[in-house]
Write a protein that binds this DNA or RNA. Sequence first.
DNA 1: TATATATTTAGCGTATTGGCTAAATATATA
DNA 2: TATATATTTAGCCAATACGCTAAATATATA
Lengths: 100, 100
Amino acid sequence: MPKLSTAKGLREIQLADNIFSALAHPTRRQILLSVHYRGVCNAGEIASRFDCSWPTTSRHLSHLVKAELLWVQSSGRERIYRANTRLIQSVLQQWTQYFE
Amino acid sequence: MPKLSTAKGLREIQLADNIFSALAHPTRRQILLSVHYRGVCNAGEIASRFDCSWPTTSRHLSHLVKAELLWVQSSGRERIYRANTRLIQSVLQQWTQYFE
DNA sequence: TATATATTTAGCGTATTGGCTAAATATATA
DNA sequence: TATATATTTAGCCAATACGCTAAATATATA
């Protein structure tokens, strides 16, 4: 378990905080899965797959980016998203282990 | 991945929703770990370990119970909590696998 | 350069969350 | 039975979350 008393522990806690709050919304979980399975997606592709408006999806995307669960990259006027699969897995695995 | 079109899938989605929203709060994650490591805890023991008021902790507890991450059992005037380690692990593992 | 396209940001309104204190409930003890 | 103890529930309030539409920004195309 991370310790509040070390810089590393603090960062880990902050990370967990962002990640679990990002995963708390069903649409965000879906976005994450969807981007993961497709490998790469631009904002429009993602937005088109969900019921909510594009701006709303856009905010979900920035939430996920802030949590470092997604990476963005600009390409012309498009924004390319990719899932940070390694982080997602490592955090989930880590927390699985806490309960072993 | 669970499907919205089947009863089982729907239940799984609902489960994930409760679980991830329960895990979204740092205090609730701490409670969960704390109860897990101690094996069994009554409400007072748990409440005493956190900064927030007992009623606030109590609400966190019911949130966790609703998500089935904790089990409660009454014993006299005490309420005994236990972590549903199996569920926690299976959900986290499941989601880890989605990203494999 | 003017316009179209891709996307985010701003701003607003409502719903939910999470904190608190006080009150209620249930059980144990004197 | 009256009181003390353990705990939850009720009710209030401020902050946050999340939906929307309209506006802003950045890049591509005519």
